[in-house]
Design a protein around this nucleic acid. Structure first.
Length: 387
DNA sequence: TCTGGGGTCCTAGGACCC
DNA sequence: TCTGGGGTCCTAGGACCC
């Protein structure tokens, strides 16, 4: 297994776009008052800037930083080239995000040599074709390959042979394991479990009581170096969602409903673009206090029409108890996805809105996003949201 | 520190059916 | 009459990942 991870990907692409940024602390993230850091160049990391850190804090500790809003079009374009390079070595590529992927190179050794050789080839080719350096972990299991690439960043390569797995894992802090975040980390530290070897030595029943049986078994296995998960080249998406944190909390129902309309429209058009319909729609409301509520509704028929999603989420919103809630974030998520194959059914039912929105899709394809929208969204920008 | 937006997976309770 | 067991679907919340 190989785990290939592009170094400081978004920040590196920004440097490619503007070479004068080379060598400077580049920080990509939400530039508004409530944004967080998505990616920081290694120069910025020297100041202590990290992913997921609030941008305001990053500005404080790195006042000389170059702060750039994300440009996903550019990242996607570079990511596609990255994947081309990987796919040239094996079809067994499992992308984890725009900037990392697992590869099963077990079947590629006749063509390209042993796995460390393949890793070296990929590193050279990625740098040449994408213009960004990467780090590669090589191991017999996915999660060890992932930890290995982590260990050799940036611009490195680490091979962990099968008989070296336990020695490699043992001293690492448990938080490095996939699936151990803040909460699980806290639980483990109360058990005085700090390293992966501590975890491997903890009886599974004790873990199960505190973490649930499933989670306990999984972590216990990983700590012992056991991970039989294979590379999964493609999986159908299970949900499509869109959410937005407002620059300032909003307490006006009319504005919030209009926002739900916009989010519903965005989700629906992405469903159509990807060829799915959804049976369940979930509304997410984060209050000023950061308390987060979700309400969902499952419909009799799957839909890819924004007006249908909006009808459901507007009802869910209106059914919330209380009034004049101060809302920080609204979201709309579609789940229960089914391929939109049996397309004719809607036409037989004489559905109108679907036709209108598909026409909008065509207009936006020709004239760009935002060139057609429901009239009630036209003056939305007056209300001080960011788009 | 004052907390994004895109996702995945899991749990637990209740309704409902046989 | 005074309460089984299994399965599926739906809903709400939460942990985690990049």
């Amino acid at each position: 297994m190989l785990h290939v991870d592009l170094d400081a990907f978004y920040a590196s692409v920004e440097v490619l776009k503007d070479p004068s940024l080379a060598g400077r602390p580049v920080i990509v993230g939400g530039v508004g008052g409530r944004g967080v850091v998505s990616s920081a160049s290694y120069e910025a990391r020297e100041y202590g800037v990290r992913s997921a850190m609030p941008t305001v804090r990053a500005r404080r500790i790195c006042p000389d930083g170059v702060f750039v809003p994300p440009d996903f079009e550019a990242y996607k374009a570079h990511s596609n080239r990255f994947r081309e390079v990987l796919l040239a070595h094996t079809p067994l590529v499992e992308p984890i995000s725009l900037d990392e992927a697992f590869l099963d190179v077990g079947g590629a050794t006749m063509l390209f040599g042993d796995p460390p050789n393949i890793a070296a080839r990929i590193r050279a080719e990625v740098e040449r074709e994408v213009g960004v350096t990467c780090s590669v972990g090589v191991a017999s299991t996915k999660f060890v390959a992932k930890l290995a690439s982590d260990h050799c960043k940036p611009n490195g390569m680490l091979v962990v042979p099968a008989d070296g797995v336990l020695a490699f894992l043992g001293p690492l802090p448990v938080g490095r394991l996939w699936g151990v975040g803040k909460k699980t980390g806290d639980v483990l530290s109360r058990l005085a479990v700090r390293t992966i070897s501590d975890l491997a030595a903890t009886p599974e029943p004790i873990l199960a009581r505190l973490l649930g049986a499933q989670h306990a078994t999984h972590l216990s296995q990983l700590a012992q170096g056991i991970d039989d998960r294979g590379v999964v080249p493609y999986e159908a998406p299970k949900s499509v969602g869109n959410e937005e944190t407002f620059e300032h909390d909003v307490d006006d129902d009319e504005t919030l409903l209009r926002e739900l309309l916009a989010l519903s429209g965005n989700v629906a058009s992405r469903l159509r673009a990807d060829g799915y319909r959804a049976r369940t729609v979930t509304m997410k409301v984060r209050l000023a206090t950061f308390t987060t509520l979700t309400r969902s509704k499952t419909m009799a028929d799957a839909t890819d029409v924004g007006a249908d999603l909006y009808r459901a989420v507007a009802d869910l919103y209106k059914a919330l108890p209380g009034q004049r809630r101060r809302v920080r974030l609204l979201g709309v998520q579609a789940t229960g996805l089914v391929p939109a194959g049996a397309e004719q059914l809607a036409l037989l039912r004489g559905e109108r809105w679907g036709d209108v929105e598909r026409a909008i899709d065509r207009i936006e394809q020709r004239f760009g996003s935002g060139s057609a929208m429901p009239a009630s969204l036209l003056d939305r920008s007056k209300h001080g949201h960011q788009f």
